[in-house]
Design a protein around this nucleic acid. Structure first.
Lengths: 146, 146
DNA sequence: TTGCAATATAGGTGTGTGCTTATATCCTGC
DNA sequence: GCAGGATATAAGCACACACCTATATTGCAA
């Protein structure tokens, strides 16, 4: 789960996510769909999918030679959580309600201010959901893992 | 309001947003704050602020020679809305509750599928909140506008 | 096994963009 | 007015990254 917002920053990748909002799809179908909008190569899409995957925005499921991609809600929620934490320092609305209780119990200080890195509740201190981190920890060989 | 997610894709810019979550701040203070994390020039920050502004993520208020920046919730909500639209095709949870009613009244079709560009409710069809759009429509001279 | 379909990786290229220094613009106080 | 502070723009550079073609890997069916 790295480079969350960096991944979202690319229009083609956002388009892929929109396509996946319609349900799970094999990589090939995504290539096809994207080609209705403009010319793009299969490897380009594959690379985008990899970025989305390491960002925790999509999941893969292998079925035979086909690889089905789907939205990964955890990543999407992480992004939403971070945004929510900005507007609403208390994080009251972010996902699980019990987080609110936690905050209250802690005696919510000063309501706004001195809360530089807003804790996006739900995931405690994601330490910035998208911390540059070019360190490709994804060396795990799992090619075509069935 | 352009390049929403592109703007969010930059770590320094996200850091600026986090700083602004603590309340309105003049540009200079942001430069100072960012310098605690690492070396950066004043123009660099100014440029980031511009990007955030044209993305609708921050607002500016001029007071004397100083320019106070603050979070623009509309932009943040737009981003959240888009994300929400992905996970929840009906857009039930996105901001104002009445949006749900609207959807229901319209007779929510087929629940999932064929809804490629999920309407993020709240702002009807932002036509992709961050549509590449390199066309710099921001030629409006408003330098140091009081 | 061979062939083909589906997808991923390798390697190379061009461009966008984030950075810097230098300078312009605008405000305020003297 | 002029000096100095605060911020924005200009111009140029370097590097990241999105893209491509070519190829490797895996699965399946003949």
């Amino acid at each position: 789960m790295n480079g969350l917002f960096e991944a979202l920053g690319e229009p083609t990748r956002r388009q892929i996510l929109e396509l996946l909002a319609g349900g799970e799809q094999p990589a090939g179908a995504l290539v096809e769909a994207l080609r209705t909008r403009g010319p793009i190569s299969q490897p380009a899409v594959s690379q985008h999918l990899r970025v989305l995957r390491t960002a925790g925005l999509v999941t893969v499921r292998a079925e035979g030679a086909r690889r089905y991609y789907a939205l990964d809600e955890s990543g999407l929620r992480a992004a939403q959580g971070w945004l929510a934490g900005l507007v609403d320092p208390l994080g009251a609305f972010a996902q699980p309600l019990d987080a609110l209780a936690t905050e209250i119990a802690r005696g919510h200080r000063s309501r706004r201010g001195a809360m530089l890195a807003p804790t996006p509740v739900g995931q405690h201190r994601p330490a910035d959901p998208a911390p540059d981190a070019d360190t490709d920890t994804d060396t795990e060989r799992e090619r075509f893992g069935a």
